[in-house]
Nucleic acid binder design. Structure first.
Lengths: 336, 336
DNA sequence: TCGGGGACTGCAAAGGGTTGCAGCGACACC
DNA sequence: GGTGTCGCTGCAACCCTTTGCAGTCCCCGA
C-alpha cells in the first residue's frame, strides 16, 4: 500500500510516535486527549507539548473504528443552489462544528430515488443524517432509519424526530391577508408531488379559503422553480383569480417575471404571495409579500435533535417552528 | 464501549458476517468488492448475494485506515449563504460523488483565521481540500499544503494547483463597455482586503481606465455584501463618477437599492456593473449588467484537479476559466 | 508422466486509536 | 506494620478492512 506521505516527505505523526517521544505508553497519550482527567497534569503537559511539536492530530477514522462514532453528520437536500437551502446548510454546519462534528452535504437534484442512494452511501460514515424536505415514501424512510439515525426536516414522520415549519399557519395567514384585502377568487400555485410542505399548504389553504367563503383554484403539481412559476402564468390568469399564493418564493418570483412580461401589473391587477422569505424576495420589484420560514433555526434544531437523541435514548419529538407573514408590496386590494 | 446497534436491535453486518455466511474467508469478501476480477465469478455472486441479504456495506473508516485514502474531500468557502457559492458547491459535490467521493462543506464566515482551523480539522479526514477564495497568507498556505493536498480556487499561489476565473479580463471588458458608452469618470467599489480577486480587478481596472484615458476612483476595502454596497452609496456619489464597477453582484445590488432610495435613477444618472452573474442579477430591476464567472465549472475543475494530482504526481497547473460581460439594463450612456 | 503456470483462495499482519483490567507506589488509617 | 484506597500508568485485545505472500488445484504442453 502507499503510505500517505506529506509533501515534505515526512509521515504524519501517530499516537505511537508521540508515546515514544514522550516516554509513555500509547494508552496514556490516548487518554491525554480523550480523558485528560485520568492523567497526571505533569505527564499531560509533557505529552501535549511533544504532540504539538510533532504536529500530531488524532486520526478520526481510527477513532471512529473503535468508538463507533464518526463525529460526522450527513445533510441531504434537494438542491444546494435553491436559495431556500443555503441558510439552512450554513446554520447546520455552524451548529455541527461547534459541537465538533463535520458536515457532509449532498444534493439529490430533486430526485427522490437519489435520496435513498445517498443515505445508504453515507450511512456507514456518519452518526446520523439530516433529511431536508424528503420526497421518498414513508416505507422507505422506515427502512432507512434502521440503518442510520435520521432527523427529517420539513416533514412529519411517525416516530421519527422531525423539525417542521408551521407553513399551515403561515398559509392561513396569507389567505386571511388576501381575503382582508377583498379578494374572493384565489389561486394556489402548487409545489412538487410528494412534498409534505405542499400537502400542508394545500390543506390549510383550502380550509382557510372555505372558512372565509372565498373561491380557491389549486394548480399543480409543479417543480419548485422560478421557471415553473413563470410557465404557470397563463394557467394562473385563466383561473380568474385576483390573488395567488405560491408554494415558494422562487415560483412566485418566476410568476412575477412572467406577469411583468405580459403587462399584468402587480399588485394592481393581481396580488402575489410567496412562502419562505428567501433573501431575494425583498430585492425584487415589487417586493414580495411572503411567509417567512425560519430556515436557519431549522438547521440548528435538526443538528441538536440528532446529537441529543444520539446521546440518550431516541426521542421522537417533532419541533415546530413558527412562521410569519411579511407583508410587502406584491399584495394589494381587490381591483374589482 | 457501546456497540452501534441499529434501531431494530441488530448490529450492522461486517465483512466477517458475510464471510461466515457465505463460507469463504474475509479476504475473499474484501476482494469481491475491491478487486472483483480476482475472484471466481461463482464465488463472487454468492458473496454478493449474501452481502445483499445481510445489508452489508464496507466500512469506509476501516478502509481508510489501511489504504490511507478516505474518499472524502473538504470544501471551504467564506460564506455558504453568499449566492456566489452554492452553484460552486453543488457542482463540486456532484463531480465528487460521480467519482465516489463525499464532500465536507465548511464555512469560515469570512474569517481568514477560521480557514486555517478548518483545514487542520479536516486534514486527517480527507484526501484533499478545496480552498475557495482563501484570504490567508501565502506562508500559511505553504504550511497547510504540507498537511494535506490543496487546490485553491479564485487565487493563484506559486506551485499550487489552482482554478481561477479571468476576472481581470472581465473587468477590462466592463471598463471598455462603460468607456464605449461615453463615461469618463469611473469608480471601482472594492471588495475585501486580502482577496486575490479584488487585487486582480483593481489592477486590471486601473490599467484599462488608464489605457482609455478615463478617470478612476478606487473605493474600499469593503465587505463583499449587499449591506456594504448600500453603505458605500454616498461615497460612490461623492466621487462624481457616472459609472461604477462593483467587486461583485451583491455589492452592486446593495448599491442599486441605496440609489433607488435616494432617487438616483439607473442607468439614466449612473451606470452600475457587477461581477459574478449570480442568479439574482437578472431578477432585480434594472437587470444588472455584470461579468459572468463560471462558478459551476470552477467547482468541477477543482475537484478534477484534486483527484487527478492525487493519483499521479502532483501537478501545479493553474486552470483559468473565461469570463464574459453580460450587458443588461443597469448600464447606459453618459448623461453629460 | 512430470513440470510449469494460472486461477483462486486462505493466512496473518497491519493500520491508528480506545478501553477494561491489572499493577504499582504513595498515603491514610487502624 | 498490615490493609485498603486512590491516582496514575501499562498491557493487550479489539474495531473492520486490505493486501503481500503462500498454498492448492487444475490444466496444458512437452
Amino acid at each position: 500500500m502507499t503510505a500517505t506521505v506529506c509533501i515534505n516527505g515526512s509521515v504524519p505523526a501517530t499516537i505511537r510516535d508521540v508515546a515514544r517521544a514522550s516516554g509513555v505508553h500509547v494508552s496514556t497519550v490516548s487518554r491525554t486527549f480523550s480523558a485528560p482527567h485520568l492523567v497526571n497534569p505533569d505527564t499531560r503537559s509533557r505529552v501535549l507539548s511533544t504532540a504539538e511539536s510533532l504536529g500530531y492530530r488524532p486520526n478520526r477514522a481510527a477513532r471512529a473504528l473503535i468508538t463507533g462514532r464518526t463525529h460526522n453528520i450527513g445533510l441531504i437536500v434537494a438542491d444546494i443552489a435553491n436559495p431556500f437551502f443555503p441558510p439552512l446548510i450554513k446554520a447546520a454546519e455552524s451548529q455541527a462544528r461547534q459541537r465538533d462534528y463535520h458536515l457532509f452535504v449532498a444534493d439529490t437534484n430533486e430526485d427522490p430515488v437519489m435520496e435513498e442512494q445517498l443515505v445508504q452511501a453515507l450511512a456507514k460514515q456518519v452518526d446520523g443524517v439530516l433529511l431536508c424536505s424528503p420526497r421518498m415514501s414513508n416505507d422507505l424512510i422506515e427502512k432507512l432509519r434502521r440503518e442510520v439515525p435520521l432527523v427529517v426536516v420539513n416533514r412529519a414522520v411517525d416516530g421519527l424526530p422531525a423539525v417542521v415549519m408551521d407553513v399551515a399557519n403561515g398559509a392561513k395567514a396569507a389567505i386571511e391577508h388576501l381575503v382582508g384585502l377583498g379578494h374572493t377568487r384565489l389561486a394556489l400555485l402548487g409545489g412538487p408531488r410528494g412534498s409534505w410542505t405542499n400537502r400542508e399548504i394545500r390543506r390549510s389553504t383550502t380550509a382557510a379559503a372555505k372558512a372565509a367563503g372565498a373561491d380557491l383554484t389549486v394548480l399543480g403539481p409543479h417543480h419548485p422553480t422560478e421557471a415553473a412559476g413563470a410557465a404557470a402564468c397563463d394557467a394562473v390568469l385563466a383561473t380568474g383569480a385576483t390573488a395567488v399564493l405560491a408554494y415558494n418564493d422562487l415560483m412566485a418570483i418566476g410568476l412575477l417575471e412572467a406577469l411583468h412580461d405580459r403587462g399584468v401589473s402587480v399588485p394592481a391587477e393581481l396580488s402575489v404571495v410567496g412562502i419562505d422569505d428567501i433573501s431575494l424576495s425583498r430585492l425584487i420589484r415589487p417586493k414580495l409579500t411572503t411567509v417567512s420560514t425560519p430556515t436557519a433555526a431549522a438547521g440548528r434544531a435538526a443538528v441538536d435533535m440528532l446529537l441529543q437523541h444520539d446521546d440518550e435514548r431516541r426521542t421522537t419529538a417533532t419541533v415546530t417552528l413558527q412562521t410569519e407573514l411579511i407583508v410587502r408590496d406584491s399584495t394589494g386590494p381587490n381591483p374589482h
